[in-house]
Amino acid sequence: MDNQDNTLRLQLARQLVEHLEAGDDEQANLVLSQLSVKFERELFEEIGKLTRDLHDALKSSRNDSRLTEITRDEIPDAKERLNYVITMTEQATNRTLNAVDEGLPLAEELQSRVSVLQDDWMRLRKREMTLEQFRTYARELESFLASTGAQTERLRQLMSEIMMAQDFQDLTGQIIGRVIRVVQDVETHLVDLLRLSSGRLEVQSPPAEPPTPDQDAAAKLMQRGPAVPNTKDSQNDIVSGQDDVDDLLSSLGF
């Protein structure tokens, strides 16, 4: 190939000298342009390669800046969110166990008193009870009936408390979902970087475009979920609780 090229160029060079010696400028110029075609092609290829490199470098720096942003803001926030999940699950567990700690003895007491009263009842049915024993039994029964209502009501409240403590699953689930999206974001950018550095540049996706309304909506979606203390959530104007919500709504004429 190269040999052929060289023979061709040598031939063209000889023709060029001949035309110049003969004073045939027109022919000489024609040969000259034939000679330069190969170099022009190489130049274009080189410029093309440089342009691609520049484009990729720019793209990679954009990628790096998003990665920097993730490292600087999102990762510490994600850690804070996960810490908050630990706190919330711990609270929910304690709330549940406290209710159980109070409820179990209540249930056990009810059960043991019923068991004693039942035995006495059987003795009464079999007419094995003295009058004095019957009087004691009646007093015990009365006191049992009096306290049972309050105790079972307390048990109901404790069950309700245990149920409400389970709301952590929804709240922590939303927070963890948000952390998962950050992890996915990091993964995408790392894969892009890997692809760049391994030089398989031809299969690149088109360059990033300015945010569209869709992306704005997606960014908004990223912010959904419970506000977590000590994260960028606190930059938002958030209510402190139900009273705050009620005040805001009543100020709007609710």
Partner: peptide, 10 residues
């Protein structure tokens, strides 16, 4: 909802 931003309540 857990959404507590004022702008969302409005």
């Amino acid at each position: 909802t857990a959404e507590a931003k004022r702008e969302q309540i409005i």
